[in-house]
Amino acid sequence: MQLKDKTIVITGGGQGLGRAMAVNFAKEGANLALIDMNQEMLDESVNMLTELGVTAKSYVANVTEEAEVEETFKKINDDFNGIHGLINNAGILRDGMFVKAKDGKVVAKMSLEKFQSVIDVNLTGVFLCGREAAAHMIEAGNKGVIINMSSVARAGNMGQTNYSASKAGVVAMTVTWARELGRHGIRVGAIAPGVIRTAMTDAMKPEMRERLEKMKPVGRLGEADEIAHTAKYIFENEFFTGRVVEIDGGIAM
């Protein structure tokens, strides 16, 4: 798919990876619909995109709420007269040990709230947004692309029972959707990033950041623009579907 004049929806588009992908796509002439919970951050992103000469609009919505997601995608479809792509980027972390014990005594357990909140955003939110984007594409007869953001942690990572489970589920949905939606001209792929440089990693203690960098054969953290480049590849390569691309610098989890 050529991105020029296409409408791409990005969840979590107010900052970080979402904003980086939006800017990358805008440079190719795509129009952007950004969904996030933070209006101020959305406004900053939209201003950056409009300066690049494309149409960009913001939508405040909670991706875990079915009615909000349905209403938001209907509005996007009406505002842009169609949807051609979706990047399911919104996600959260609520790390903690499954069960923590000391001297044979359990001192802490991962709460159901901590587990469920991550599943709600990272898995249910992806499901709802993917469903609505696909429905609008099919009804309009638009060929399209859906990208789901997974993680190298999908294989399992200490302290991330909730996050790992959600990101493994994202890959399973990606393969399933690719098989179901291919007949409608909709391709579906996933990206599994490693540790990417963000405001959070920049604020880490130097020794912790250095340890992360040494875990990667490339000797550094990833950049948001490198994930954006991967998303662009998936959109433009018409033979890509039902697969996950690992962009992790060769890290061993």
Rank of each mutant, 00 (worst) to 15 (best):
E68P: 06
G53T: 04
G12Y: 07
A140Q: 03
A199T: 14
A30V: 03
E51N: 14
L32R: 02
I227Y: 14
N237I: 03
V106C: 10
G156Y: 07
L52P: 05
I119M: 14
G18S: 06
E51R: 11
E66R: 13
K57T: 00
N142M: 07
K100Y: 13
S111K: 08
D202H: 08
A61G: 04
A20Q: 10
I186T: 02
G194Y: 11
I227W: 13
K4E: 12
V99N: 07
K143W: 04
G130T: 01
M215S: 08
I227A: 13
G156V: 01
I83Y: 13
Q15M: 13
A199H: 13
I35N: 02
K27T: 06
M215F: 11
A153M: 07
A190N: 03
E28A: 10
A61Y: 02
I87H: 15
G85W: 10
A178N: 03
Q116D: 11
D103R: 04
T230D: 07
K232L: 15
I87V: 15
C129G: 03
K232I: 08
V118C: 01
V188Y: 12
M200Q: 13
G222I: 00
L128V: 01
V175F: 14
H184R: 02
M21T: 03
K6M: 15
D120K: 05
M200G: 05
L32Y: 09
A155C: 06
A134D: 04
N88A: 07
A153W: 11
A153L: 07
N237G: 05
S150N: 03
M37H: 08
